[in-house]
Structure formats: structure tokens, C-alpha cells
Design a protein around this nucleic acid. Structure first.
Length: 218
DNA sequence: CGCAGGATGGGCT
DNA sequence: GCCCATCCTGCGG
């Protein structure tokens, strides 16, 4: 966990509006995942330094019938419990022993819905992001869910943080037009059977900060 | 450029 | 034990 005696979120260039719990508590998680494209994400990392960027790729994990969802079938465990909370909290877990995944819990209490943040266009304090990753300012800096959390220096200790908090928050920006958003199947979830085909992965079509597009306009 | 293989740990059967 | 909502390195062409 980062030091908590840091200054509050700055009136950043963005500071148009901080997304609050009402944004996350709506019931259509796929729509939220889509609307999160273009929004700005800021985090104060474990080193206490603030950085952020624009979300360019997300995935929705929606409901107990979605077998790719950690909470599928209403499976409540110490890990998944946070997914059943009302929208507006952070769900983080470790994948492949190395990578920390950032998810934003959505929907009403009792449903295991969340959105995985998969790629970021670095925009604020990019030199800090680069230093943490020892990378140049390219797609590889924060494109990919593990790379993104490494660049932001956030980990499992951020699990259950409310949105917004002084450690992590989102700021509103225009959502891209439908014709510049691509929807396609999620990746890395072959075990989910037919649910792996659901078009729950959303990307900004022409962004150089996410993988080259395949999929259908949203 | 592409691909093979290793790393590494929490969560659950 | 085994399975991952993954990434990086190193080697070959």
C-alpha cells in the first residue's frame, strides 16, 4: 500500500469530473466496459508516485452465467467475495504468479460483475511509468493487463479500494464514437467454452496503444 | 520479425 | 498438484 499522507488528487488537466460509484453500479457491465474506453485512470503507486493514462482496452466479466467470470455460478470465496460487492470498488488478483490484474467491480451488490482494464495510453507522468518498467514510450509500456499494473505500481494490496480513493480514481472524458470502438472475444479464457466467444472485449479501434484491431464495430 | 519455453504464486479441486 | 483474465527472453531466419 502506498503512503497515505500524500496530497489529494490534483486538479489535473483532466479533472473534469471524477467517476463515482453511480457510474459503476449500473447493471449493464458490457456497456460500462465500453464506456470506460477513453476515460482517464490515475493511481498513486506503491512508491507514492502519481501517474495515469487513458483507457484504451477493457473486458467485461458479467454475471454468474459467464463461465469466464471468477464468480461464475455464485462462487464466493475469499478471493471472489469482493466481486459480489456493489459496484465502485477495485478487485485485484495475481495471474500466473507474476502479473497483477486490475478490475473495477460493477453492478448492484450480490452480482459478480467486473471490468478488467487491459491497456492504457500513458498521458500523465509518463516518465514515472517508463522508469518503473524500464521501457520506452511504446505500446509495450502499458498495453496488456500485467504491464499496466506494473507501470502504475499497483498490486494486490489495492484490492477492495473504493472508487474513487486517494490511491486510485477515474476521471471522465468523452467516450469514443461507436464506429471507433471494436468489440470482440476475450482472450486467454479458452476454458470458458462457448462463453469465450462473447464480444466482451472492447478496444479503441485506431489506437496505437493497444494491439492491432480485430473484431466488429460496437 | 516469429515462436518456444520459462518464470512464479494464489486459489481451488 | 494443477490451473490460470500473462509477459519476457532468447534464439532462429
Amino acid at each position: 500500500m502506498p503512503p497515505s499522507s500524500q496530497p489529494s488528487p490534483p486538479s489535473a488537466p483532466l479533472m473534469s469530473r471524477v467517476l463515482d460509484t453511480a457510474f459503476f453500479r449500473r447493471t449493464d457491465t458490457a456497456a460500462i466496459a465500453r464506456e470506460l474506453l477513453g476515460q482517464y485512470l490515475f493511481a498513486r503507486g506503491t512508491d507514492g508516485q502519481l501517474a495515469g493514462g487513458r483507457i484504451v482496452e477493457t473486458e467485461a466479466y458479467a454475471g454468474e452465467n459467464d463461465r469466464a467470470n471468477h464468480g461464475a455460478g455464485g462462487r464466493r470465496t475469499p478471493r471472489t467475495e469482493v466481486m459480489f460487492e456493489a459496484g465502485g470498488v477495485v478487485y485485484m488478483y495475481v495471474c500466473y504468479g507474476i502479473h497483477h490484474m486490475l478490475n473495477l467491480v460493477t453492478g448492484p451488490a450480490g452480482r459478480s460483475d467486473a471490468v478488467l482494464i487491459r491497456a492504457l495510453e500513458p498521458t500523465h507522468n509518463t516518465s514515472i511509468l517508463q522508469a518503473r518498467r524500464s521501457r520506452k514510450l511504446t505500446r509495450e509500456l502499458a498495453g496488456g493487463p500485467g504491464r499496466l499494473t506494473h507501470a502504475l505500481a499497483i498490486d494486490r494490496s489495492y484490492n477492495r479500494l473504493p472508487l474513487p480513493s486517494e490511491h486510485l480514481w477515474l476521471e471522465a472524458a468523452p467516450t469514443p464514437a461507436d464506429n471507433s470502438i471494436l468489440a470482440g472475444p476475450r482472450v486467454g479464457i479458452d476454458y470458458a467454452g462457448a462463453d469465450a466467444e462473447l464480444p466482451y472485449r472492447f478496444r479503441i479501434a485506431d489506437s496505437p496503444w493497444t494491439s492491432p484491431a480485430s473484431g466488429r464495430p460496437a
